[in-house]
Write a protein that binds this DNA or RNA. Structure first.
Lengths: 189, 189, 189, 189
DNA sequence: AATGAATGAGGTTTCATTCAT
DNA sequence: GATGAATGAAACCTCATTCAT
């Protein structure tokens, strides 16, 4: 595997463990057995590395979301289910970059940040669109604001990165089911 | 007001704006017109300051939660409502320390962190207890895991600190209503 | 003597010997037996140090020039003589800062540079004024451009910093006499 | 044109704009669309490049001076005039390398420096020789030290690189005339 | 003839912290 | 109570140079 990729992977691991500010370039290159010069041969700055990590992650997420959106003939409940499942499953698959993604956006420079924010917004608006379409087709209640519901879903799912351990006693399927039941039918008896 | 309090307030403001690692003691004392020596007269380290901020915040939250829990004769749905309302209202009242609280826990030393985590856990377990009690009393469905639902509620609410502007077009009451409706009755038609 | 002054003096010596870019903060503080931290306690940057050196030098020069300008009753030839003498004598007195002054202006930031340039220009315009006044009073020929003559004088004198050794075989008085003779009466037989 | 020449020209431009120390090899090769490897194929070091620039310049100057010196039958005043004219005209023709030449000699290694200094000295001694010969032939006053006068001339002319803009309001002919009048006949009325 | 990857030493700067006063 | 001077470790980054290809 080429060095640039190794640097990115190692950085993700360290950023996730210690945080972006607390991880030095030295830490990264030392873990790989290369020199700082090598790092700066591939990246122009620490911030640029973080930007690449962010874009890589959100782009991957958007691509997967696209498949959900475009899958024809599915009900909107199913689309929502797929979305929640996507986010939770990512914890198992890419837990680390996800956590870096959620925690370290503040360290992007304004320009990088706005690029990333735009894509995150797109992801959120897609969820909102599912809800709105579901409302129009009579699947969902129409007396709720779709935008706020979208935020609720995102919060519920994303927060899981803070505590959910896919290798723990709760499986990701179980978590998804609980979230979806709560979301679709509520907890009231 | 005494200096120690001023330091805490100023720090909260700066930590929230720039982040803990990105804020130097110099920044804090400069904004107050005192010197670094003064800071170290009141605090033994930067970390200790952060710990005090965390404890102050979570203790305040726990005290308010206690009132909700102990209020006799209320239904569990109401207790849940009060809890969600508490968390969202805090954004308006103490948005800044809340954001610091959610973002900067990683910078606490293990001992401080475990103390804070324990209190956070207590807050979460209290929510869980409300749900469990509600289940026992027949208010809530019994086929869902109370612990996961508690996480869902916390995620939904806490995530709001990332985007919700209490001075924006959506009021905090509206947000609480939407969250509670979703939570209690679900979004399905 | 206080440390800030020591830093300035040591820097001047090193800048003169090795050049600004080639002198590191490390070099400076090592020569004084203090640490880099100390340097940055007194100066906000390497550039700020250079700026102080420049301003200190040109301000001193301007003050001395003022005395020459304001001395009443002297002929303009005398004022010119005093000016040339001032510049040459400075080599003996403050050779080092003078050389730093002449060589390292490029390393000032634009704002500092413009401040310094303005003062250097003032010094030159004062020379020009002496010549113009001398022309008006009939002391000097009126068929030469005073501004170009001022540049000629400055060039002649300032260039001396490149080669003149006040402890060498030529005395500064002798050099001043030769320059003034050349300047006032020319070298033609 | 071959690459080596291109590198030299590009370097001169960058050295003149930003200074030798402030210009990196990267800057140079990037501006030319080649790589650092290419640079080191043609030059053994950055210093060697500077040396070539210096030698190229001073050799050119010496060759032109030779023509002035050897031109038979001209008066010494004329030879002096030609010399001054040569130096001033060079600003228009080769302003950039000239400025690099005057400013960056400090960055030559001792061996290169001494080679260049020797040639610079030769140029100066040639001027001195003109003056001495002029004295012997009665063209010039004999009560001045020829060496110091030579320095005065060089200073006057070389300093012009610091301020004279050949495309500005003053023409180079005008400047040469003023310098020569001052030099030959003085400014006294 | 030219490239691209890699190095390693050194540069400026930041900053939490200490301590005598 | 509070200050100001000083530290020292570490941060990010630059760059001339080397070398296998």
């Amino acid at each position: 595997m080429d060095i640039k990729k190794k640097i990115i992977e190692q950085s993700i691991q360290l950023f996730e463990m210690k945080g972006f500010s607390e991880t030095s370039i030295q830490d990264v290159v030392e873990a790989l057995g290369v020199t700082k010069g090598t790092f700066y041969y591939y990246f122009s700055s620490k911030e640029q590395l973080l930007r690449e990590i962010h874009l890589m992650y959100i782009d991957g997420l958007l691509k997967l979301q696209e498949q959900i959106m475009e899958n024809p003939g599915t009900r909107y409940q199913t689309k929502l289910y797929e979305t929640v499942k996507l986010l939770i499953t990512q914890i198992k698959v890419t837990g680390r970059p996800a956590r870096v993604f959620h925690r370290e956006m503040r360290h992007l420079k304004p320009e990088s940040a706005s690029m990333v924010k735009q894509k995150r917004k797109l992801f959120r608006l897609n969820i909102q669109k599912i809800i709105e379409s579901g409302m129009e087709h009579g699947e969902f209640r129409q007396d709720l604001r779709a935008d706020l519901v979208a935020f609720a879903i995102l919060g519920m799912c994303n927060w899981s990165y803070n505590w959910f351990d896919p290798n723990g006693p709760v499986t990701d399927e179980e978590l998804v089911e609980t979230y979806m039941e709560t979301l679709l039918n509520g907890i009231v008896n």
